[in-house]
Design a protein around this nucleic acid. Structure first.
Lengths: 154, 154
DNA sequence: TACTGATAGTCAGCATACTGAGCAATATCC
DNA sequence: GGATATTGCTCAGTATGCTGACTATCAGTA
């Protein structure tokens, strides 16, 4: 029987587990209470003002049923706003608040520090190679999860 | 602002997301209802009969509060048994059942197929390099999560 | 032996993720 | 124009994963 730790699935889970722990530790030390998922959502809302929830979900590969709760919490924290769209009454337009912008700005050093820490143990070259391989394998498997990455169409 | 997809944390999450989806699809197609987490736990119980929950958690890097529910479900499905330990009345000894052994045996092809599918898009050489780099980065960050990997001590 | 600390397990509570279902609104096609 | 399909969002239910707290038990020591 093959060892558990020789399975890509196990390594994927473990790397993600460490990445989340490092993110929360760094951001928490900086005095903020924001999860990796909430951070990515907020940053993407800022970069694409007025986008709807499905588009946001596609840009960061979240399930549409997950994004609802994530936005709930961002709104609860006063970092984002959810408005009814005027063009499509089904859709909600998302905006970042001033408070959200401030938070993003102040949190950035901690987020970048976290990315470095989670790659510690690898040389710069190895880190880049890991990123390249992950990009490649993720691109190939994009359609295999219920929540694939979707580019914005003009 | 750095793109989301340039962050190792995002790639970690995405790879894990795809890995889980592929695992569930392959195992489901084979007619079984077992999650990656449940599979790893069951395989580890089989390889270490009579181990307690904390040891199991350490061997697969699960949190001890998570393992409780996982074992609950394995027991519920009749794949494992949980007994009070005779040596330590705090501890529970875990055993795989015949049904669990049968399931593990029949599920193996699907599990191995899943591991191949989640690496599709990479050459054999690239796949090995990805595994090597993940191993290395995970080893370096092992203590950074609440549930680090723990070797069995004789 | 009594005290202290550590350990095994569970529980409540919260945050992802997913399945599947449902509602409301929009698009499409005849 | 009206039936049909599709889309945006939400909800209920289930499964990780974590924090922090708690009980029961064990181990070490004064």
């Amino acid at each position: 029987m093959k060892d558990n730790s020789d399975m890509p699935g196990h390594l994927a889970r473990r790397f993600q587990q460490i990445a989340v722990a490092v993110f929360l530790a760094e951001v928490g030390d900086a005095g903020f209470d924001l999860t990796p998922v909430q951070y990515a959502a907020l940053a993407t809302i800022k970069a694409n003002p007025g986008l709807d929830q499905v588009t946001l979900a596609g840009l960061i590969a979240y399930d549409r049923t997950t994004i609802t709760g994530v936005i709930d919490r961002l709104v609860l924290k006063g970092l984002a706003e959810r408005r009814a769209s005027s063009r499509d009454r089904r859709a909600r337009e998302l905006e970042i608040t001033d408070e959200g912008r401030r938070t993003l700005r102040k949190i950035t050093p901690a987020v970048e520090s976290a990315q470095r820490i989670m790659l510690r143990g690898l040389s710069a070259k190895e880190g880049e190679e890991l990123m390249r391989l992950l990009h490649k394998v993720i691109a190939a498997g994009n359609e295999l999860s219920r929540a694939p990455l979707r580019e914005v169409q003009a």
